[in-house]
Amino acid sequence: MSAAVMSSAPTRSGPGLRLTLALFLTPVVLWLGLLIVLPHIDLLIMSFRMDPSFGDQGWSLENYHQFFAEPIYWLTFVRTAGYSVLVTLLTFLVSLPVAFYVTKVVARNTSRFLLTMLLLPFWVSELVRVYGWMILLRESGVLNHWLMALGITGAPVEMLYNDATMIMGLVYTSMLFMVVPLVSVLESLDDSLIEAACDLGAGPWTIMRTIVVPHCMPGIVSGGIVVFMLTLGNYLTPNLMGGKNSLWFTEQIYNQFIASFNWNQGAAFGFLLLALSSCIIWLGLRLTGQKLSRVVQ
């Protein structure tokens, strides 16, 4: 009896099992169907139609044509993609030494404490963190006050509103999503492998390249995917820290929806961004032979 219950095969299950299946399945199907599948289908349909205020004109590729015809649109798109790759790389380079230090170098009881400290700032809203950088870096900001007090600069320097600061802000926002997967793969790396390599005469650089990085690959990929996706879809940081020329593609989408009220054009932009992020994620998984369900764990 219990074997039949345990396997819970639909053909052999009793009425009780059917009931629980329906109980669990209904809310989940409603959630995914109404809030995930339908809206994205609607997004796709909308992007292939024209602004209805000029009358219904049937299907059209005009919105996508607009994207390629106007350099400001596709240039923003390419810039956003390029900068997102750069941010992902920089985040990795900044986070790896820290993750290694916390898991392998520092004493074990300090390690727990440092890890908690690493995570703590990321529980705070992104807006608060960006605001903190703004009051540090702006012309009347804290950093300028100190620089002038120390006599390093005579007049305040505007450090906010440029690409470099925006990149820094995006790296800052993303670090957690790289550190956490790196820490978890590093914890599974056996110290004796590193000790053996060291005994056999390998230098730190060789150990890093031939042992640590290959072992960390699953963590690097999952961290990279999350960081890339979050950076690509970020609105706050580029909007508040970037300058006039640091337009992010999400801002283009926002402009189409809220300022120009051209939802069809905005839908096309949204779909292009979704396609780009899905492609990169698929590529990342493909290149390293991993499954999405494993990466998100």
């Binding site: 997004l43 879809g233 839908a267 961004l273 899905s278 999405l292």
Partner: peptide
């Protein structure tokens, strides 16, 4: 893996 902005629109 869907950016929050896209989910919103």
């Amino acid at each position: 893996v869907v950016p929050g902005v896209i989910l919103g629109i």
